[in-house]
Design a protein around this nucleic acid. Structure first.
Lengths: 329, 329
DNA sequence: TTGTACGCGTTATCAA
DNA sequence: TTGATAACGCGTACAA
């Protein structure tokens, strides 16, 4: 490997001069030219580890994601990527495969790597998560869930649920099936659902039945094959777009027409909802913007600035073909 | 920050002893206990940069991807992630947004980061790519495209094209529309298509028309809205599953029935093909296995082992609902 | 403007 | 088994 010393010798100057050339720049034109030439010839590039060691700065930001094949995660990642690139940070991405143990590990791994800050896509948050994070000195930012004493950016999940609730009522529906996910994911499993329930409950005679599945399409598909034939609801609220897409597939295979036989909606606003037929009504979340916002917030955290603990991202009802008036039936 | 020196002082030993404790382990039980305790108390963890500096090893592998929201890329990434984790490597992922300039940059950035090796998802390969890679001393592995003098793992794209061709002929189709992507992507834009053409051409009276689009669903959708009404082909071969999904959407909106009005197929085997209706015939690629294989190969490259320059991954025809006999029309 | 000398946190060598 | 010391590549006072 070619080092700053080699350059210095070949150029006939001290290595500190080369260092100055690389950083500040207080170097005479003559030596500057010499150094430039040698560096060009040798293809020298400074060793980042030595730099980091000296500067106590790594210029790296860690990102923890629960899985790689998630549409929403990837959109947020795009925002993060865009922003970190602009600010000159390198990204270290670790995947936990939706496994808590791995998440604990990764928190520590990233801290050891001395990343300057971490953005963590939170799913289920356990006390161990909080504890592990608190032990590190690294600035942490949670995405998707809030936790006492840790900064976070979340979606307005409760409001999203309300929007679907209000919209479904407007269409005249009174009998609902809510296809949810486990409550361990507070934002999606609890808040989103509660927003919906609170929106429809005030109206007399509404019924909300519930079924629980997980975030995978296959599980939702399997369950839907079973519950759809026995269902009496006229509107199926799915906790995510993926679930909605899976239910739609099952419904078609069972011979149902949507929205004629029942209405269907999801949450998220994934591209997939637009490429199935009927297109699926959903609540669109600003994932990319969330990523950008996350980096901004984390950077301010790194800079020891005062930052509000919780930021919320708003969302928007998107009406598509999968929902219709109750009366039409 | 707490360093090895702090530990040594508090434990009343030399830092070299602590270092030995951390690595080899030739330490008496007594001092071992002392050191253990202090480390526990202080929450000390070794500084990786100092380690890397000394060991000239970073334990990092770089991955270059063209975009974040690609189903196939993410599946390969899963395999890479699984394998690197097993082997104890950290992953640095850089995204180029399908931009050549950024790819050149990223190649150098990763080399500067002194990653031990790089896996690059190649799309379009320019002479500058090859040159930039060659200049770095870092072991490189291309995924998806081959290039003179650089190791790579590729799909059997030509064979995949042949399979679709043979299958379509079997169904009795003779008039085809091939919806392709630019030739700058040799594997997908050229080989895959050529495999198809060479398979159907020997039969008398076959016609292959061609249209070009890009990898995004939206472009394909827009184009399909135009070309479908004028089309005379009875079988539409799409260069990727995403394109197929987009064409399907357009077809439905225009009132066509698939496969009654025409047959349709893609390449890749993405989950999406199973969640639209009709489900789409495709060629399934072993993405995850490719990622695993890539890491294995790269690691051997890093270890200066002799490795064949090109590895090929096979694939498999998956017949779904979107294709049917010509006669049925 | 330039060079000397030291320190960042770690590991490896060599004596003791 | 232990400890002193040098070295990894770089940046930076400080002096020249």
């Amino acid at each position: 490997m070619v080092t700053i010393n080699d350059i210095a010798k070949k150029a006939g100057v001290a290595k500190s001069t080369v260092s100055r050339y690389l950083n500040n720049g207080s170097v005479s034109l003559d030596t500057r030219r010499k150094i430039e030439k040698i560096i060009e010839e040798t293809g020298y590039s400074p060793n980042n580890f030595a730099r980091s060691l000296k500067a106590q700065k790594t210029n790296m930001i860690g990102v923890m994601i629960p899985r790689l094949n998630s549409a929403s995660t990837n959109e947020v990642l795009e925002g993060i990527d865009e922003m970190t690139r602009k600010l000159g940070y390198q990204l270290i991405i670790t995947n936990s495969d939706q496994n808590n143990e791995r998440e604990y590990e990764n928190i520590q791994t990233l801290a050891k790597q001395k990343v300057e800050g971490v953005i963590m896509f939170a799913r289920e948050l356990t006390p161990t998560h909080i504890e592990t994070v608190s032990k590190t000195q690294t600035p942490f930012l949670f995405i998707g869930q809030k936790a006492e004493g840790i900064h976070s950016i979340i979606h307005q999940d409760y409001q999203a649920g309300s929007k679907i609730g209000a919209y479904a009522l407007e269409l005249g529906h009174r009998h609902f099936l809510y296809v949810g996910v486990p409550e361990t994911d507070r934002a999606v499993g609890v808040d989103r659902r509660q927003g919906f329930i609170d929106a429809v409950r005030p109206v007399n005679g509404t019924i909300v039945e519930m079924i629980e599945t997980d975030f995978s399409r296959t599980s939702a598909y399997q369950k839907a094959l079973k519950f759809l034939p026995e269902m009496e609801a006229t509107y199926v609220v799915c906790a995510t777009d993926n679930i909605a897409v899976a239910v739609l597939k099952a419904a078609k295979e069972l011979g149902y027409s949507i929205p004629e036989d029942f209405s269907l909606s999801g949450f998220g606003g994934y591209e997939a909802t637009a490429y199935v037929s009927p297109t699926i009504t959903t609540v669109s979340y600003p994932f990319r913007e969330m990523g950008i916002e996350a980096v901004n917030k984390l950077v301010r955290l790194i800079g020891k600035e005062e930052v509000p603990y919780i930021s919320e991202m708003s969302n928007e009802l998107v009406i598509n073909q999968s929902t219709d008036f109750f009366e039409k039936k």
